[in-house]
Write a protein that binds this DNA or RNA. Structure first.
Length: 424
RNA sequence: GGAGAGUUGGCUGAGUGGUCGAAAGCGUCGCACUCGAAAUGCGAAGUGCUUGAGCAACGGUACCGAGGGUUCGAAUCCCUCACUCUCCUCCA
């Protein structure tokens, strides 16, 4: 959510930021809405002031037993009040219109985010690892993984497309990946392990910006709750409406949860394989920090995700997203893309974003500085550390062997119960 | 699912429909005492909005879970909803 005061103070900067995200200038329209709202509020407040004054006088008149005077004042207030209901209705409508307008606008990009309209404008920051040379033609996981227990047909019988049924060694490997990631983020990176609700209400979905604009991407339960599309929703909303003390910050939380996505807008994309599912596991990393710490925290968080890829020996590249390709709430985002030899491409496996105070305003999450009067909005960050399903794909494709088996990376062996390779 | 109790400022917790933005305590900040600190004493302070002539002060207005309603006037009465707690029922 944008701060209307910042727009008033510097409409040019607001429009310039929106332009970088592909929006036409909107400050004039928004400021006009703001002006009409405040003009109305000023009128209303004057009327209310007179009403309050008269009401007080009635109380005094009654106390003094001056009934005639009290009745006269009552009549006066009654006429004063005739205009109020209409004004209140109009005020509510104008306020809602302004808030809806602001809530539908994405965060503005940070100064060091490159220009660009789409993923073509993203900037590669670094590469790690050397893609393995194969003495055979590496296959896509969708072609050889079904023989290893990644079963799409069984899932389709009960659930349809974009679901998988993992069996035996494959299910074990996915579980091992989740455990490995969670252990490293909690033990090495200091994130607090959380187990969260997988369903949340409207306000929470609004807080992390899935609502109102992206409701079609979510699944909704029959009682009106939303299945989380990422644990960012449940972890970040842990502090909604809170006033934190400064010593509670930074707050770092992680959770291994299923994520549910309708993939409404991606018909036809990634229909083969385990890349784009309605349901997948992910280890999410959320930080709640002071404003001055959020830039450094983004670097720290991205590094925490990189270390998982490095620990598993998976080559990747680090991308700085351009203004046009960032998510709605982000002011700066790094994507990590893992090398998939079967597809001969880098594919997104982690996205780490600094949301600034954008979500905090929606959640009304503030903190108090020691010795300083008043509250400030916190900054929120989120990142995947990592998407488990896509990591499974990366393991399968990078560690595949000519005979269709897959060797298990050393780091996962302690979690595999004696399994050292997946065999058909 | 049934019955009941509750939701008040950073926290705990009072509050007969009419100076209640709200007692008190804790915590916070300032001052005094002290070499310094603790203890003690004194004092200060809620938040949002404000096209009120700009900033500050001051003033106006709103805010006692959320939203409606009654009333000249609502923290206080009524309705709806959310949440918390207790008991019963059901259940992994």
């Amino acid at each position: 959510m944008h701060d209307i005061r910042l727009i008033r103070e510097n409409p040019q900067a607001f429009d310039a930021g929106l332009a970088r995200r592909g929006f036409a200038p909107l400050s004039a329209e928004i400021l006009a809405m703001d002006a009409s709202l405040r003009a109305l509020q000023t009128d209303m407040q004057a009327a209310l002031a007179r009403r309050n004054e008269a009401s007080k006088a009635i109380g005094q008149a009654m106390a003094q037993g001056d009934r005639d005077r009290a009745e006269a004042l009552k009549a006066e207030v009654a006429t004063l009040k005739t205009a109020l209901p209409e004004q209140e209705t109009a005020e509510r409508a104008r306020l809602a219109a302004l808030q809806d307008r602001l809530a539908a606008l994405p965060n503005l990009p940070a100064a060091d985010v490159p220009d660009g309209e789409d993923e073509e404008g993203n900037v590669e920051i670094a590469r790690w690892g050397t893609p393995r040379g194969f003495d055979f033609a590496p296959q896509e996981h969708a072609d050889f993984a079904p023989a290893l227990g990644l079963d799409f047909e069984t899932a389709a019988k009960m659930s349809g497309a974009r679901f998988a049924f993992l069996k035996g060694q494959m299910a074990r490997l996915e579980r091992a990946l989740g455990q490995y990631m969670l252990d490293r983020q909690t033990i090495e990176q200091g994130y607090t392990e959380c187990a969260t609700p997988l369903m949340v209400r409207d306000e929470a979905a609004f807080g992390t910006t899935q609502l109102p604009k992206f409701r079609e991407d979510l699944f909704q339960t029959t009682d009106g709750r939303w299945l989380i599309s990422t644990a960012e929703m449940s972890l970040t909303n842990a502090v909604r409406e809170d006033i934190l003390s400064e010593e509670q910050l930074p707050m770092r939380m992680t959770a291994l949860t299923p994520c549910f996505r309708s993939e409404a807008g991606s018909a036809g994309r990634d229909t083969r394989g385990y890349i784009r599912q309605h349901q997948f596991w992910k280890v999410e990393l959320v930080s709640i920090v002071r404003p001055e710490d959020s830039d450094a925290e983004l670097e720290r968080k991205t590094r925490a995700a990189e270390l998982i890829l490095e620990g598993l020996g998976l080559p990747y590249r680090k991308m700085l997203l351009c203004a046009g390709d960032m998510g709605f709430a982000a002011r700066k985002t790094y994507d990590l893309e893992v090398w998939l030899p079967g597809q001969n491409a880098y594919r997104e496996i982690s996205s780490c974003s600094n949301c600034g105070d954008f979500q905090a305003r929606r959640m009304n999450t503030r903190f108090r500085r020691e010795g300083v009067k008043g509250n400030e909005f916190v900054h929120t960050l989120n990142g995947s550390g990592l998407a488990v399903g896509r990591t499974l794909v990366a393991i399968l494709e990078n560690y595949q062997q000519a005979d269709g088996s897959v060797t298990i990376p050393e780091a996962l062996l302690p979690y595999m119960g004696g399994i050292t390779e997946l065999t058909p």
